[in-house]
């Protein structure tokens, strides 16, 4: 089992400068503490900097102000201890399912046998056994997304980032995969950060929901979700939380408020 990571984000700000245009404040003073083994979901309007924040955490972009630490160590570049699942599954079309997952273990330092075992276990974890030799175009959208989750987890990262992994799926497949993600999170015990537009998905899965607003991208509200798992989407407490989050998104979206300062 992976050791769950403790992620600390302190005062992170990020600006994009495009030639001939004013600086864009994409993230402004973001603070977030993610407990080891927690499931934190980030919701917010399009363009508020959710993906940007994930890019900083995964290490694809180190041009920012503030600190991002995993287990009290400042993150530098990309590392196998941090995994990510992109919105487009991003499986390489010329590799079979098992080769795609195996690609994340190229530099794990494990033996051949350990790698094979990890690949097999993670294919089973996402219920894709039997499809080891299938190419991505032979998988449905939901299967491809599950394969991407398996790839993200195979190297046993301390933290897994999920950037709208279910955004492109139909409602039924989504709900099915939400159950799967929940199960995988419990089995693997890994810290997870999920970005989504779906408030129900956020409440269903997380310990903590973070609401962001745009211009500049910032956190406007953080809610702890204490409902017992598995959660009932129709329960009054669930619905009440949903209303609260939607209100936070609706009222604070777009304009800077006193709470953000």
């Amino acid at each position: 089992m992976a050791t769950p990571g403790h992620l600390t984000i302190r005062n992170v700000s990020k600006t994009y400068s495009l030639p001939g245009r004013p600086l864009v404040n994409v993230l402004s003073r973001v603070n977030l503490d993610v407990e080891p083994g927690a499931f934190v979901t980030i919701v917010g309007p399009s363009g508020c900097g959710k993906s940007t924040l994930l890019r900083l955490i995964i290490g694809l972009d180190d041009d920012y102000k503030g600190e991002i630490e995993l287990n009290d160590k400042r993150i530098v570049g990309t590392a196998l201890s941090r995994g990510i699942v992109f919105q487009d599954h991003r499986l390489l079309p010329w590799l079979t399912l098992e080769q795609n997952i195996g690609l994340s273990l190229e530099n794990s330092g494990w033996t051949r046998a350990e790698k094979d075992l990890a690949v097999r276990e993670h294919i089973a974890l996402v219920s894709l056994s039997g499809f080891e030799k299938a190419y991505p175009h032979e998988l449905s959208g939901g299967m491809a997304q599950r394969a991407a989750i398996a790839r993200g987890l195979a190297s046993r990262p301390e933290i897994l980032l999920l950037d709208e992994p279910l955004g492109a799926l139909d409602a039924l497949t989504r709900i099915h995969l939400q159950d799967e993600i929940q199960r995988i999170w419990e089995v693997e015990g890994v810290t997870m950060i999920l970005v989504t537009h779906d408030v129900e998905e956020a409440i269903f899965l997380s310990n903590k929901v973070v609401v962001m607003a745009a211009k500049p991208g910032r956190i406007v509200e953080t809610l702890d979700i204490d409902l017992p798992f598995p959660r009932d989407r129709a329960a009054p407490a669930f619905v009440a939380l949903k209303r609260r989050i939607l209100t936070a998104m609706g009222e604070d979206g777009g304009k800077p408020t006193a709470r953000a300062a």
């Binding site: 196998l80 992109f86 991003r90 390489l92 590799l95 994340s104 190229e106 530099n107």
Partner: peptide, 23 residues
Amino acid sequence: NYIELAKVLTLTRWQLIRKVILP
């Protein structure tokens, strides 16, 4: 996107060429 993925998977330059760029 694929180059970015290779970075996330910490592929070396040679692995990137062989597994991603050439295919």
